[in-house]
Simulated scan of single mutants.
Amino acid sequence: MSTLQIGLAIIGGLVLAGVVAYNAWVTGRSVPRTARERGAHNADEAAGDETLPYSPADLSENEIQRIDPVLGEMPGAPPPPAPAVVAAAIASVSVNPLMAQPEKKPGLDALIDVIAPLQLEHEVSGDAVLAALPGTRRVGSKPFAVEGLCEASGEWESPRLGQRYRSLQAGVQLANRSGPLNDIEFSEFVVKAQAFADLLAAAPDFPDMRAEVARARELDAFASGHDAQLGFTLRARRTAWSPGYVAQHASRLGFIAGALPGRMVLPGSQSGHAAILSLVFDPQAAMAEDPEQTALREIALSLEVTHVPRSEQPFVRMRQAAMSLAEAMDGVVTDDAGQPLSTDTMDRIGADLESLYDALDSRDLSAGSAQARRLFS
């Protein structure tokens, strides 16, 4: 074999080795990070330190830019006159089924319900009331309810077996995210409540339809301008994540498994209340035969602003969680269009939320209250 042939053979071998090495590098980058991985930054964890070794403040300001605020609105409702809060992405909130027992179901409230007293000729049993209830608890798109006055506590309650009542009332919600109560729904409420009352020999006292429908429109107009569903999107900078890898880091921030695949929630400090935050990713990836081999390029953090009390500091915790996850998993916090969110933008969101909370408080519809959760549903 000549010197030229030997040289060409060596060059060919080097080229082949380079191709193999490049393919191995590309393949390695395409494999999602899994929960079993431990980087150099996780050395403290092996020693028993459960604190995240990352600081949100380390995120470079050169990697983010300003974006314009966007307001989340109620479905089917007219847009508010001015933005009340910034929303980058929208996702629904889920309550973990393993959390403590839910709080008592909120009762009728004159603030957000049409209420018709039912005059009884004689005392009736809770068994009879339950048997007379209509088959559906809705009037059009609005919840319908019947309550009895408990003499022992002096409070209105949902009818119970074994209880006896001298006073009853029926009600329908004035507005929700489907819009205000209209003439047709009010008429349906009257028919349904009258049929229920007839079975118990009760006489209903209905309020004026025009006044109640006008009240529903006014309440809906307020709600339309103060509904907010806030969300951030976390996108992988380079290597994708597996569902287990995401769950590993989220659980260290207090998130727990939600009721649906691909969902985790951050529980509130009060049992039975709505979750503070929801973390969502592709449910198909979560249900894959081998989830650790599925690749996630993005996850979403969301907050139902009107469902969480201000005292929980939901936005502060959302911002901290987003930045901590981004740093820990080598990601970036963006809006739903993929534009990174700057510190200034997040500061403006926080200021807008404070104004929103004040407006809700002024109407006795404080965020996280039973009335607010019913209205904004």
Rank of each mutant, 00 (worst) to 15 (best):
G12E: 10
L341H: 07
D352M: 08
A223W: 00
T136E: 14
P53D: 09
L118V: 10
L279T: 07
L174H: 00
R237E: 05
D220P: 02
P79Q: 06
G244A: 03
D352K: 01
A326R: 06
G258I: 07
Q101D: 09
R29E: 15
A359Y: 04
M209A: 11
L149K: 11
Y165S: 02
S178A: 09
G135N: 09
L356C: 14
E123G: 03
G13H: 01
S2T: 15
F222D: 00
G368D: 05
D183T: 15
L118H: 14
F222W: 08
L303C: 10
R252W: 00
V265S: 10
P79H: 13
A195R: 12
G135V: 15
S167R: 14
A82C: 02
E292Y: 02
C150R: 10
K142A: 06
A197H: 04
G338K: 05
M329R: 06
D44G: 12
T306K: 03
Q248A: 14
S92L: 14
M318N: 06
D347A: 04
E123P: 00
P134M: 12
A89P: 01
E73T: 15
F186R: 03
Y357W: 07
V93A: 11
L14Q: 05
D208S: 08
Y357N: 12
L296C: 04
Y22T: 09
H226V: 00
S178E: 08
S158W: 07
L120M: 02
L325V: 03
A367M: 05
L98Q: 14
L98V: 11
N96D: 13
